[in-house]
């Protein structure tokens, strides 16, 4: 029996491309946010609200990731910002090479904030670095308050948590306090926002924070 010792990271290829993406974004002075959540918790709605409120102050571009369809890109396009849709054709997450190729399709050079909306999934996207500055995770009230405990990697690796659909709190079995406690047990440094993309409640606080970190990049 002979043994070859190799000690190589399984994800090294993705990590190398992610590092190159990060370098490129930094050189071009672009702040990048990887937006993650389960399907239907409001990622695209939050992107829409963010663009509507911020596009007069910040130049925003969006990469949309979905398993199928360009429905999300069409929603974002309606706000007149540059958008590229990635269709993964089955893959449950975005990888760094997809983001690299999508970014090449933008013709604008003055983007300040690049929002990457990942595929709706609380598991796999946590494992793949895309070269972003921060991950932001959304947990909506309709999903209950236990998601941080069930999907800890996503919450541990994120800088901010947006608790969305707070307008539905009277109708759903979700305690905001419990959700916050669970999230902070996984990641004590999480910055937490409470929003409703339907009523606009809490959106201004989120925008204020986002604009401040984009400006201080």
């Amino acid at each position: 029996m002979s043994i070859i010792t190799i000690e190589r990271k399984v994800l090294e290829k993705n990590e190398a491309i992610a590092a190159a993406n990060r370098k490129k974004f930094k050189e071009r002075n672009i702040f990048t946010m990887n937006l993650v959540s389960s399907p239907g918790s409001g990622k695209t709605s939050l992107v829409e609200r963010t663009i509507a409120k911020s596009k007069s102050k910040i130049k925003i571009a969006v990469i949309e990731g979905d398993v199928q369809t360009d429905l999300d890109a069409k929603r974002v396009e309606a706000f007149n910002v540059p958008v590229v849709q990635i269709i993964t054709s089955g893959a449950c997450h975005l990888e760094a090479n997809l983001v690299r190729d999508a970014f090449e399709k933008f013709s604008d050079n003055d983007t300040e904030l690049l929002i990457i909306e990942n595929v709706g999934n609380l598991v796999c996207p946590a494992t793949y670095d895309l070269g972003e500055d921060i991950k932001v995770v959304i947990a909506s009230t309709t999903e209950g308050d236990d998601k941080p405990l069930k999907y800890p990697a996503m919450f541990r690796n994120s800088s901010a948590l947006i608790i969305n659909k707070i307008d539905l709190l009277p109708y759903v079995n979700c305690s905001i306090e419990q959700l916050k406690r669970n999230a902070l047990a996984i990641n004590p440094s999480l910055k937490i926002f409470q929003t409703s993309c339907t009523t606009d409640e809490g959106i201004d606080k989120w925008i204020e924070w986002l604009e401040s970190i984009v400006k201080s990049r």
Binding site: S2, I3, I4, T5, I6, E7, R8, K9, V10
Partner: peptide, 11 residues
């Protein structure tokens, strides 16, 4: 961790 550590081959 997620690493490939060793490959063992028969002679």
């Amino acid at each position: 961790e997620l690493t490939v550590e060793e490959i063992e081959l028969e002679e």
